[in-house]
Design a protein around this nucleic acid. Structure first.
Lengths: 135, 135
DNA sequence: TTTAAGTCTACTAATTTGGTAGGATAAAGC
DNA sequence: GCTTTATCCTACCAAATTAGTAGACTTAAA
């Protein structure tokens, strides 16, 4: 399951996608419109900024805005950033790989199945973008 | 990600699938062979028994064994039982559905996408069984 | 009746998640 | 250059979940 943080992130990003190229948007505006705890949202947006998804402007007239065209930002990128691995097992994760501990088998059926699941999921989330959230 | 508990469950079930129709298997044997903490495994097996996946026999010569043919036990069933929802959002879950809180939108792009992901995953885990783990 | 097993309830420790506090920093506008 | 408005940053806290343990109880076989 996606964490609440991830759900908040997607709500905020959806809002910012709708306002793309309309200048900075206040955190407080996003928090209010999307019903997200303000200080929690601060953290989330900052994290998205550090990952180059968002950019911001301080002081009067400031706020957050998308750094890139929302049609270029893959869903997979956001999920990995805020939620973590997409795969169901560390040993089949592309970005968070960890080798199987204690798995002395030469061949593992679960592994194979989870690769299938991973690829089926990636086929979707690697080919959808923030823009798709607003259509 | 699947919890460690789920991974232990699958390891144990794989072992019991290999020993299907060969009589009861000791918890301690499974724990040792699959390197699972004994007392933790006890809880897991008991849970699987209560869900009618396993059956057991007490006393000397006792142990656990599959109640049904492993080719009849869907992966999806085990995942839901031990790990929880397969969907990425409560509002798109078939077995753990909860309606979207604070989602005042008439239409939600994230929702649609997560239904796609869910269905892609289900297509796999509803059509694979414990037997597939040993092939 | 002893021994070998699973059953059950309850607890504890560690980790993750969700959220908050409050000061530091930077930019705009007078 | 002060004041205001906003983000930035570090640290903290509470609740929930996950992982694992303890120990007494029950049942069945020999």
């Amino acid at each position: 399951m996606l964490s609440k943080k991830s759900q908040y992130a997607f709500k905020a990003l959806t809002y910012l996608t709708e306002k793309y190229e309309q200048g900075p948007v206040l955190i407080s505006e996003i928090a209010k419109k999307k019903k997200i705890p303000l200080k929690f949202l601060e953290n989330i947006l900052l994290e998205l900024k550090k990952a180059d998804i968002l950019d911001s402007k301080k002081g009067k007239g400031g706020g957050y805005f998308l750094k890139q065209n929302p049609a270029k930002v893959k869903m997979a990128t956001i999920i990995r950033l805020i939620n973590g691995p997409i795969a169901m097992l560390p040993c089949v994760s592309l970005y968070f790989y960890e080798r199987c501990k204690n798995c002395n088998e030469k061949h593992c059926g679960l592994h194979d199945m989870m690769i299938e699941v991973r690829d089926a999921t990636l086929k979707i989330v690697e080919n959808r973008t923030l823009r798709d959230l607003t259509i």
